[in-house]
Design a protein around this nucleic acid. Structure first.
Lengths: 240, 240
DNA sequence: TTCTACTCGCGAACAGTGTTCGTGTCAAGA
DNA sequence: TCTTGACACGAACACTGTTCGCGAGTAGAA
């Protein structure tokens, strides 16, 4: 490309924004979310976000430490809409299911969020902390002992996030979905090639028709099983 | 760096390998694993692997389609050592726990593997398929209905992988661990700053001493809970 | 033995990435 | 009006995955 130093473009300074583009953490996060919604998390590069704001990548670093920090800020913004219930001991099971379901739905609605959440080792911002606190609140309200509540909340959050992540891997484009279906038939053919007793159960599973599920059945089932296993630690006196 | 075309280095052609470096899928995967074990998955770039074989990145593409395929081949190689039990209905719970535990331990032993496994939407190679088939085998042997066994096997695999991934995010270097601890105290201080009733359960959790666990307690607990919840679908006639 | 054909290694290039440095410009305070 | 300091930002650095085309080496045919 042209490598000689280009003179400052005269049309930007006065047209697009008021002299200065007025960058701030909020505008940067908003731009990043815009890009993520439109083109996916992979497209959320510093350059791409800056371009959306009509500036260069270097400008972002005055407001945001890292790309990692930008990611965390996206996560925080997305979890803003989370509604936490006030714990009711008698309804702890459905409240728990609803809360974890809600966080997972939020992530599913914005593919890319789950990936950030999984990669962010220690969540440090209000939105994500609120979800964790609410989960713990419901469990403790049901009389579940402290340590068990800690472990259970961790496992629930991890499973929900992992489920959302896995689901968001599924390509959204028509071409990508066709490719994925091609790979599935490929693997079915491969399994049929092998001696029938090599992977018998897997083969049987892939032949079952409901294998192509369309809802959150799989997710809700796992949640139900886990909560059922958890129920024996709840205090019958509290949960009636 | 020096950018003029360097003449072919005379010492390689005859010394290192027999005229040609004798590349193959096996040698490439071995080199990739070497790099991953030594420097982590992030270091496993095409150039880095090629360098380890004394060649250039382009040479790898004759044997491996993609970086993605190279990743899958690594996964396959790592899961080679998996030992699958012959299902025994009366011991299905411990067999299940042991199998999932084993796959998770394999991934924990090689940080980076979990990430590959999570990113590989549809596993297509014998090693990973064998793990799935064995899980299904144990469940069906216990008399658990087909669809439930399918969902349960999926959930177990997903949770185990996610757990291993989360654990492998923890930095291995001394400096990285110090940084992580710093972040944890940072978040503790932040929580203490807020009104005590903002995140009360979270605050209480972080103050509990066993919060810094050192084993697989958390993982085994979640597994136990899930299996307990699953037990009601097992056939009492089979499992005695 | 000579010549041809074909496989496969591989340098260079392309279009991207995160991040830093140093310069330049603008607006508000003295 | 002058100065100061905050902020915008072009260019550069060291990377990344992947493709193209050349060229060397080997194996088979004449």
């Amino acid at each position: 490309m042209s490598s000689e130093p280009v003179p400052p473009p005269p049309w930007r300074r006065s047209a697009n924004k008021s002299a200065r583009p007025h960058l701030s953490v909020a505008t940067i996060v908003a731009a990043a979310l815009r890009v993520m919604d439109a083109e996916g998390l992979d497209a959320v590069s510093m350059r791409r976000v800056a371009q959306d704001l009509g500036t260069g990548a270097a400008s972002l670093y005055a407001h945001v430490r890292n790309k990692q920090e930008l990611h965390e800020l996206i996560l925080e913004e997305v979890f803003r809409g989370l509604e936490v219930p006030t714990p009711d001991p008698r309804r702890w099971q459905e409240q728990l299911k609803e809360l974890i379901g809600q966080t997972t739905r939020i992530m599913l609605a914005r593919p890319g969020t789950a990936q950030i959440s999984l990669q962010t080792m220690i969540p440090m911002r209000p939105g994500t902390l609120a979800a964790m606190d609410a989960t713990l609140g419901i469990l403790r309200c049901a009389g579940i002992p402290d340590q068990i509540a800690d472990y259970a909340a961790d496992a629930l959050a991890l499973y929900g996030t992992a489920y959302a992540y896995e689901a968001s891997l599924w390509p959204s484009s028509e071409a990508g979905q066709a490719e994925a279906r091609r790979r599935i038939t490929e693997i079915e053919e491969y399994l049929s090639t092998l001696p029938a007793d090599r992977f018998p159960h897997l083969l049987a599973m892939m032949r079952r028709p409901f294998h192509e599920e369309n809802g959150s059945e799989r997710f809700e089932f796992a949640l139900d099983i886990f909560i059922a296993g958890l129920a024996k630690y709840a205090d019958p006196g509290l949960t009636e």
